[in-house]
Structures are given as structure tokens and as C-alpha cells.
Nucleic acid binder design. Structure first.
Lengths: 326, 326
DNA sequence: CTGAAAGCGCTTACAG
DNA sequence: CTGAAAGCGCTTACAG
């Protein structure tokens, strides 16, 4: 910058002014500066600028695992709107661990990220609150958290689960099992809530033994389906936590010579690409993952512009996608 | 930091020394400083530090599309080793465009990233060279580029293609088609080279009409397979550019009532998760994507530590995974 | 329309 | 073992 100023025969301040396009500048002066900039290949140092403006044009995205097909799409959503606004985005994987999440959050704050988007997963509310007290904005996805410094993007999970199970009921199923992830004892997740909502609405009994839990993976779905159907062969339909588990369930059914959907209907959750290529193709509840990412980034931007304003939680609607497995 | 110094009754310099664990410090003094740090919740500002040390502990990863199942795994590879070494990583999507790639590169340099990992895709060598002249280190994946400032991680694509086609030949196929992406006329990609290598080795004719090109997607594979088999029904095996295309090819064959693998064998490339859940499951060439990412990040780290050293290209070996489609 | 000075929050020689 | 000064590359009031 000094070199540019010298070459153009002006002060550093003037260079700064043309770079930032602020204030009035004599056309001739500006041209001289621009020429010097081009000749020297000068590019402003964003770090130095950031130190003054307190804006790094950087946001962090904290997710369990980019390798899980759910997350790349939301990542793309945030990246696309970030890029539109001149932001770069850090991505951190936590594998769902509470301490890894916490570390990632503070590491992002140390890097002076302007904002942070996080799937809080196992993170305790207390920890999240501590962080939010020192950092703003943070936006959580799928986790309601009331705080001046946090915005929330909510996927209507309970509604989605209701749609899935309702569809199964409409098709005449009365013995519907559920395969889901482990969760704290006694706590019902939104998916389980949606499931019981509908059973109740139809006057169907809720049998806790029909709800089995394990890792939300292909293998998890496979193993749990075996377990569930071995024990309760009367079950004719299964609603799963996500598509990965649903695809595992399809494999298990094939192996057990249970036709899908005739002998056992299966409905997944998320609508990832995988679900279109299985045989039968998966009936599932679509989450607009890309929109989730976009909204989250918009939320960050909004909170950055309005430091004093409370952000009202945004809801992302769900949609049932009927294919072949149910 | 000033507050910490004041509270501990020492100079700023002393605080800096305990934070960076450098130099000898009286135990009592150190303790006082540490207490002050904890009490105040002081965290060093990495930006300010970066401005001096010229190290942001930040790297950029420039890929076509995080939504393509190939890339999350390599991203995870670089992120994991990055994190181990205290680095955060920016991810930029380019959709394979040359100008988007160039923009991403310079944006990363503007952010003062310490290094950059890039799939150069459509980027012209000249552009890459210009960038590398002003920035170091850059490491390219799958693109050999001789330059003091660039390291290369090479996947043995030609070798992988040879393995795939050799397997098909061994199985007795003599009419083997190929579905691949568009590429500059007259230029043979490494996959096509591997394909022709083996045909030649077996004394089989090379028929350019049997090599069809289009987008490397599910749909692309589907459409091209229709086209290829409609025109040349004598073809009994197809080697595809990637697994996405291979899965599309399977769909097309099903629709055309061609049994896979009996009537038409199919071999893919990459070994993404998708390929395990199709019916039939895909035979493919495995690329260790995670290792690619790890190596790339190691390369960055190495080049950062040895500014004067030329990095020798690293090769990632391939492996044929035989499942059901061939 | 343009310039000189102070300062963002640190680290790096250099003294003592 | 510890301190005072300069400076990383910019921007922000404040003058003129």
C-alpha cells in the first residue's frame, strides 16, 4: 500500500479511499492510484483490515460429519449465500461429540469468525449458553435456544414424522415399528413424538418395545431391522430415523425374504440421493437441506446487520416423497 | 492482554511470553499471569498474531462441489489432519468453472490462507502458474504441475482404468464401451488412456464411437447408456467415468431389459457409498479419497515447513472392488 | 479534495 | 528473569 501511494505520488490515506470507494476523489488522482495498483498487483490485506473493522468476512459451520450425505447439501446452502456476500466459510466436523463441538466453537471464535452456525447435537445447553454469552451471532440448526445472541433454524421434524406415520396408517398398517438413534432415557425425540402423535390419533397402542435404537447408519438400520422383525414378526411397517437406516432396513428385509413394501413397508427421513437408487426406491420425508443452509447463513447476515434485534426462529417445512418402499 | 498484564502487575511482554510458553519465567510470575488470564477469560487474538507471524493457521480447499459424494471424503481427510495441527479449513465450491476456481484461489490468498489445496479442473495451466507465482504453497490434486510453489497429489487414474478394463477382458468381454465426461477434442483423459491401453494389449480394436461423453451424473450415465446400447447393441460391458454414471447405467439397463451383469457388465470408478446399495451392487475401482485429503494436507504442512524444498508428487494407489455388476 | 497521526492486538529484536 | 519500543498493513476520526 505504501508502495502504491509512493508510485502514485499520494498519501496512503488516498489509496485507502480509492480501494474502499469512499469519499470524493479527483478523477485524475484516482486514475493514477488505480494504475499504480494494477502495475504493482496490489491486493489489500484483509487481515489488517479485519483488525480494524472487526469483520473478517468469515463464518464457521460446525457439523457432525461432512461425510454423512445430509450435511454437504446444507453446507452448500450456506456456502452459496456466503459467497454471494463475500464471505468464506470454515467447516468443522465434530462427530457429534460435545467436547469436539465446544472446541470447534471456541476455535472459530479465536479465528475471529464473524458468526457461527452449529448443529448442537450433544452439546449441553449450558455450554452453548456460555459460548453465546461471549460470541454473537451463533445460529443453531434444529435446536431451539432462547438467547439474544442466537438465532434458530428449525426443521419441522415432528410434523415430518407425523406425515410419514400418517401415510403408513392410511395404507392400513396397524403394527408400525420405529428405528431411531439412541437418546437420553425418558426423553422423546421429535421423530418419536410425531410417531406417537399419529398412533394415538388413530387409537393405536404405543408399544415401547417396537421402538428400537442404535447408530444412524446403514449398518445400524440393518441390524436393528433384524432385531425388530425377529422379535416382532407381526410388524408390517417401519419408520426410520433417516434414509441411511432405511436403506439398511431394506437390505435386512431382502435377506429375511420380506418383500418391500408388500411384507414390510419402509419410510425413511431426509431424502438423500441414496434413496433414489435403491430397489425399491425409498419413500421418505424430504428435508430441504439446501434451504436449511441458506436460511442459516441469511440468519447470520441478518443478525450481523442488526446487533440489537432478536431473530425469530425460522421453520423449514417438510414434504412426503412417495416412491416404492411404502 | 493489557488488562491481563495490569491485573498480574507485569508488562504485556511477559503475558505474551507465558501465552506462547517461550523464555524462562519465574514460576510465581507465571502463576500470577495464568490466574489473571483465567479470571479475565482472556483468549489471544489470532488475527493480531497472524499479522505479525504471517501465519493464519488457515488453509483453503477448492473443489467443484461438496455435494458430489466424492468430495466430502477428501474434505474430511484434509480437515482431520488440519485440525490435528491446529488449522481451520475453508471450503470453496467452483462447480468446475475456471473463473470460479480462479476467484476462489485469490479470495483465499486475500484471506491470507497459509496454503491452498485445489482440484484445478478447467483451470488453465497459465492461470494456475500465475497464481502459484504469487502464492505458496498450493497443492493440486490430480493435476501434475511443475513449479517450485506447488505440490501434487496424484491418483493413479490410468492404472485404475486399466484394472477395470482388464477385469472385463479377463471375463471374456470383447465389446466394451466407455462412458465418460466431455473433454477437449483430441485430448485423451487418463481414464480413456487406461481403457485403450488394455484393449490394445488384448489386440482388441479401439472404436471411437464406443466412447461417449456427457455430464458425470446419474442422469448423464442413464442417458448415455441408452444412446450407446441403442446404437451398438453388440456391446456387452461398459466402463464408466465414475460411480454416479455407473448407477445411471444400471437404471438404463434395467429399463432396456438388459440384465446386469449377464447382458451388460458395468464397472464404475471411485467407490462411493452409493455403489454398495444398488441392485446389483457396483463393481468399481476404489479411490482412497480420505487418503487423498490427508496427503494433500500433509503436503501443505510439509511445504510450509520447508519453503525451499521441492515436493515430490505423491501417488495414491487404486484397488479394484468386485461386487455384483461385473 | 487530500494529508498526518493514532491505533486495532499482538510479537520481535534489543536492552537491562 | 523482565520491560520499553517499534511495527505487521490497514482504517478512522480529525484537520486543512
Amino acid at each position: 500500500m505504501r508502495d502504491v501511494a509512493r508510485m502514485a505520488g499520494v498519501s496512503i490515506k488516498t489509496v485507502s479511499r480509492v480501494v474502499n470507494q469512499q469519499g470524493e476523489i479527483a478523477a485524475a488522482t484516482r486514475q493514477r492510484v488505480i494504475d499504480a495498483i494494477n502495475e504493482l498487483g496490489y491486493r489489500p490485506n484483509r487481515l489488517a483490515r479485519a483488525m480494524i473493522t472487526q469483520r473478517t468476512h468469515t463464518v464457521g459451520l460446525v457439523i457432525p460429519d461432512i461425510t454423512n450425505p445430509f450435511f454437504p447439501e446444507v453446507a452448500r446452502g450456506v456456502q452459496d449465500v456466503a459467497q454471494e456476500h463475500g464471505y468464506n466459510v470454515f467447516i468443522c466436523n465434530t462427530d457429534g461429540g460435545a467436547v469436539a463441538t465446544q472446541k470447534a466453537l471456541y476455535s472459530l471464535a479465536d479465528q475471529s469468525a464473524d458468526g457461527v452456525i452449529v448443529f448442537p447435537a450433544a452439546l449441553r445447553d449450558e455450554t452453548l449458553g456460555e459460548f453465546a454469552a461471549a460470541f454473537r451471532p451463533v445460529v443453531t440448526i434444529n435446536h431451539l435456544f432462547e438467547h439474544q445472541n442466537v438465532g434458530c433454524i428449525m426443521v419441522e421434524i415432528r410434523r415430518g414424522a407425523q406425515m410419514a406415520v400418517e401415510y403408513l396408517c392410511q395404507a392400513g398398517h396397524v403394527a408400525i415399528g420405529m428405528i431411531t438413534t439412541e437418546h437420553p432415557p425418558k426423553m422423546k425425540t421429535r421423530r418419536v413424538l410425531g410417531y406417537t402423535d399419529i398412533l394415538q390419533a388413530h387409537g393405536l397402542p404405543i408399544r415401547d418395545e417396537w421402538i428400537v435404537t442404535g447408530p444412524a447408519t446403514l449398518d445400524g438400520g440393518y441390524t436393528l431391522t433384524h432385531k425388530l422383525l425377529d422379535q416382532f414378526p407381526e410388524i408390517t411397517a417401519i419408520f426410520t430415523y433417516n434414509d441411511l437406516m432405511a436403506v439398511g432396513a431394506i437390505s435386512a428385509c431382502k435377506e429375511m425374504a420380506r418383500g418391500v413394501p408388500q411384507d414390510c413397508a419402509i419410510v425413511g427421513f431426509d431424502d438423500i440421493q441414496l434413496s433414489t437408487v435403491t430397489t425399491p426406491a425409498l419413500t421418505t420425508v424430504r428435508v430441504d437441506k439446501y434451504a436449511v443452509g441458506q436460511q442459516a447463513m441469511h440468519c447470520v447476515l441478518h443478525m450481523l446487520e442488526h446487533p440489537d434485534q432478536q431473530f425469530v426462529p425460522t421453520s423449514i417445512p417438510m414434504q412426503l416423497v412417495v416412491r416404492e418402499s411404502a
